[in-house]
Design a protein around this nucleic acid. Structure first.
Lengths: 178, 178
DNA sequence: TGCTCCATGTAACACGTTACATGATTGC
DNA sequence: GCAATCATGTAACGTGTTACATGGAGCA
């Protein structure tokens, strides 16, 4: 698996506490790799035991338990090693396709409202990505290699959302025909 | 989760043995919902205990243990109930985006060959889908409601593969620029 | 005889989700 | 004082993966 490597990458970009990582996984990187805070704490504990990361009491901890994690050389090595492994293609397991197959097998169930709801969700997410794009990758500003890579990852999300909207709309017309 | 409901749907389309289901999940439906044979046997056992499906010794079992499963009314009801539940949006967790982020954080790692490999995989899958489309949904032939839904699901896969090819090619040009 | 495929299963483990617990800090 | 948020964690369970086991059938 690669949750640990996603966390390593995120930590490399910015040393953080588990809580901050969890919130970042709910925002930027997490749009592409969801994880709950329990998963993240578990991975951090494992990686610290493995010597991939180290933690100190966070500078802004005050009287709290807040800890700050950073990547150790062994973690960098592991991440570089892993990044070059061949990776499995993404699988597209979307519950809605199963529901549509069930609709086809059982007869019309009235999935239209669900599809409309999905379109709204995709539009919201697309707008979120567009806002991030406008903020982080403004048109006309020259970007470095890292920024261009990050921008492409964001674009992937935008393409996916737009494609989902278009496909769902076509699906609605199919359901509308008798 | 919904593996059980995916299996129910598949069984509804055609009563089958666990082995046959596993092979179908490796072909048609499985392009959109992967499952190993162990998962399927586990689900079948659970659903039989729950009264959603029933099994008999398969007609073509011979001296083997082969069993044939079919959906019971309780299973149909459950599937119809589930299909109208609101569903979570699909998450796009692609390992390659994590690897690219790692590349951005660590410096150029040489992911080009991996990306080229992915393009080939996406092209192969696209061709597979096109073959299925030519066989099951030939142009000019009028299709019923069910066939149109199945066709749309297949199209979703084709759109995804084509989008992945295009995006990966653009990503390669980004990596090629210094 | 030995090989491959058919067909089902057990066991162990890794990953993901949900519920709950604990205590400090911040803002009204 | 009270609620919300910050911050970390335990426990239980469900899902997904990997390795291995078992035995029949078909074929050279």
């Amino acid at each position: 698996m690669s949750l640990s490597h996603a966390v390593l990458t995120s930590l490399l970009e910015k040393p953080s506490s588990g809580y901050d990582l969890a919130r970042r996984f709910d925002k930027s990187i997490g749009y592409f790799w969801h994880a709950t805070h329990q998963q993240i704490y578990r991975e951090l504990a494992r990686m610290e035991a493995a010597g991939w990361v180290a933690s100190i009491t966070a500078p802004d901890a005050g009287n709290t338990r807040k800890r700050s994690y950073r990547v150790l050389p062994a973690g960098r090595d592991e991440l570089g090693r892993w990044a070059l492994e061949p990776s499995a293609p993404m699988d597209l397991r979307d519950e809605v396709t199963v529901r549509l197959r069930a609709d086809a097998a059982l007869g019309p169930l009235g999935l239209e409202s669900e599809l409309l709801r999905r379109i709204t969700q995709h539009q919201d997410k697309l707008q979120t990505y567009r806002n991030i794009e406008a903020r982080d990758f403004p048109a006309g500003k020259p970007l470095g290699r890292n920024a261009r890579i990050q921008h492409m990852i964001l674009k992937k999300g935008m393409l996916f959302e737009q494609g989902s909207i278009d496909w769902t709309q076509e699906m609605l017309t199919v359901l509308a025909q008798a």
